[in-house]
C-alpha cells in the first residue's frame, strides 16, 4: 500500500478508511497545509501540493460559508467526469484537521460520507491532544544544510 504517515496514530484510521471507502487518494492534513498522513501519492512533493491546495480550498470555502450562511461548510464535494473529490473536516483533540479523498465510480459520495463519519470517530479516539515537537536536528546541522542547498542550487 502506498501509505506514509507523519504521525504513527494516523496509520490505522487512514488505512481503514482507504480499505472501506476504496478511494484512490486520501490525505489527512492540518489546515495549514501540513500533511499528517497520505495514501496513494507516489511522490512526497505531490502530496505537499495536494495539501496546499486542499488547505486553500478549505480556507476559502470556510470564509465563503461564513459569508453566505453564517457558518462554515462541513464538507465539500466536486464531481469530475472520471474522478471526484471529497474534502471534509475531522475534529481532533489537538484541533481541527482535514480529510481529502479522491475517488471514482468504485466508490460514491454516500460511501465517503459514511466512512468519513467512522474516520472522525477513530481519529477522535486515537489522536493525541497536542503534537509535541521534541528536539530533532543535531546542533551542528549547518554544514549539511549548506551542502544540500548548494546541491539544490547547482553550486556543489
Amino acid at each position: 500500500m502506498r501509505m506514509s504517515v507523519a504521525a504513527s496514530w494516523v496509520e490505522a484510521p487512514l488505512k481503514q478508511f482507504v480499505d472501506d471507502a476504496r478511494v484512490h487518494y486520501a490525505v489527512l492534513l492540518h489546515p495549514s497545509g501540513q500533511v499528517l498522513g497520505q495514501y496513494g501519492f507516489a511522490r512526497s512533493v505531490d502530496v505537499m501540493t495536494a495539501c496546499a491546495l486542499a488547505a486553500a480550498i478549505d480556507a476559502s470555502s470556510r470564509a465563503l460559508g461564513m459569508l453566505v450562511e453564517g457558518k462554515a461548510f462541513p464538507s465539500l464535494h466536486y464531481a469530475g467526469r472520471e474522478r471526484q473529490i471529497f474534502l471534509a473536516e475531522v475534529p481532533a483533540p489537538g484541533g481541527r484537521l482535514l480529510l481529502l479523498a479522491v475517488f471514482d465510480w468504485e466508490s460514491s459520495l454516500g460511501l465517503l460520507q459514511l466512512y468519513h463519519e467512522e474516520f472522525r470517530a477513530r481519529v477522535g479516539e486515537m489522536a493525541p491532544p497536542i503534537a509535541h515537537n521534541a528536539p530533532a536536528i543535531a546542533a551542528d546541522f549547518e554544514k549539511e544544510l549548506n551542502k544540500n542547498l548548494a546541491v539544490m542550487f547547482g553550486r556543489a
Binding site: S107, S108, G110, L111, Q113, L114
Partner: peptide, 10 residues
C-alpha cells in the same frame, strides 16, 4: 438509512 443507501447502491 444512510448506511443502507450508500452500501446497497454500491
Amino acid at each position: 438509512g444512510a448506511a443502507f443507501a450508500a452500501l446497497t447502491a454500491s
